[in-house]
Design a protein around this nucleic acid. Structure first.
Lengths: 138, 138
DNA sequence: CTGAATCCGGTCCGATACTG
DNA sequence: CAGTATCGGACCGGATTCAG
C-alpha cells in the first residue's frame, strides 16, 4: 500500500528517452567507475540487505531496528552505515536525548535505487532459487 | 546495440498485472525466503559483476572471458560459478576437447534478472557516488 | 539504555603455482 | 584452457566495554 503505482512510475522512467544508453559516449568512463564503485559497495556483505530495508520501509530506521531485522553484528552494521552515509546514500541524524536516538534515512539517490529492490521482489514472485545439491557440477 | 528495445520490453513486463504484488498472500513466506537467499547470494563478492557480464552480453561466456573481465581470482570465480549453477542461474556445458572448452550461459531465470542490472546502469548515469571523506559522521 | 569502538577467532577472498 | 591447492591477508561475527 506504500507505493500503489510503483510499477507505472518505474515504467515511465524506463520509457523516457532520457535514460537511454548512449554507447560510446564520453561519460562512459565516469559511469563505469561509478558502476564499479557501486557494485563493489553492494558486493560487501549485508549492504544490499540494509538498503533493501530502507527501500521497502518508508520512514527512517534506527540502529536497533536494522540490528534485529538484518541479523548482523553491531560492528559490521556500524561500518556499513558509515560507508553508506559516506557515499551519500544515507543520512545520519543523532539526537542528544536520553535514551539516545540515532535515525538513519535514505537520500534521494537511495530512493532512486529502490526500483532495483522492487523488481527483485517481482522476480522472487515468479522464480525460485532451488539448490541443486551436487549434480551437474562434478 | 545489443539490446535495442530492452527498455520497452522491460516496461511491458512491469506493467503486466501478472507481476502485481499481492500483500498478505500466503506465498509471502516462501517469497521472503527466496528473497533472503537471493540477497545473500548477491551479497557475496563479485556475484553481481558476474551476472552483470551475462546480462550485458548475449552469448555464452567462458572461464577465461570472465576471468579477465571481472578481475577475480580463479578459485573465487570457480566458487561463484558453482554457486550460480547450483541455484539454477547459470548452465555449465563442458566439451571434451583439446584445448578444453567450458561454456557458461545464463538461464531464463538469470535473463529475467537482467533488468536489475540494466536499471543499475541507468542509475549510474543519473547519480554519482561521491565519497565524502569524514564530515557528518563524527 | 543505545550506538559504537575494541579485541580476538573464524571465514572468506586474492595471488601464485600447479595439474588435467 | 579450466580449474585445483596452498597460503597469507582482509573481512566478518561475537563478546565485551565505553560514551552519551
Amino acid at each position: 500500500m506504500v507505493e500503489p503505482s510503483h510499477a507505472e512510475e518505474f515504467a515511465e522512467t524506463i520509457l523516457s528517452n532520457e535514460t537511454e544508453r548512449k554507447p560510446g559516449s564520453e561519460r562512459a568512463e565516469k559511469d563505469n567507475r561509478t558502476m564499479s564503485a557501486l557494485l563493489n559497495l553492494l558486493g560487501k556483505k549485508h549492504t544490499i540487505v540494509i538498503l533493501h530495508q530502507f527501500a521497502t520501509g518508508e520512514g527512517p530506521l534506527r540502529f536497533s531496528d536494522l540490528e534485529e531485522a538484518v541479523d548482523i553484528a553491531p560492528n559490521t552494521l556500524s561500518n556499513r552505515l558509515k560507508e553508506l552515509t559516506r557515499v551519500g546514500l544515507l543520512t545520519r541524524r543523532a539526537y542528544n536525548e536520553i535514551p539516545p536516538r540515532v535515525e538513519y534515512d535514505s537520500t534521494e539517490k537511495a530512493k532512486d535505487l529502490a526500483p532495483v529492490f522492487w523488481y527483485l521482489g517481482v522476480w522472487t514472485e515468479r522464480h525460485d532459487l532451488e539448490s541443486t545439491p551436487l549434480d551437474e557440477l562434478a
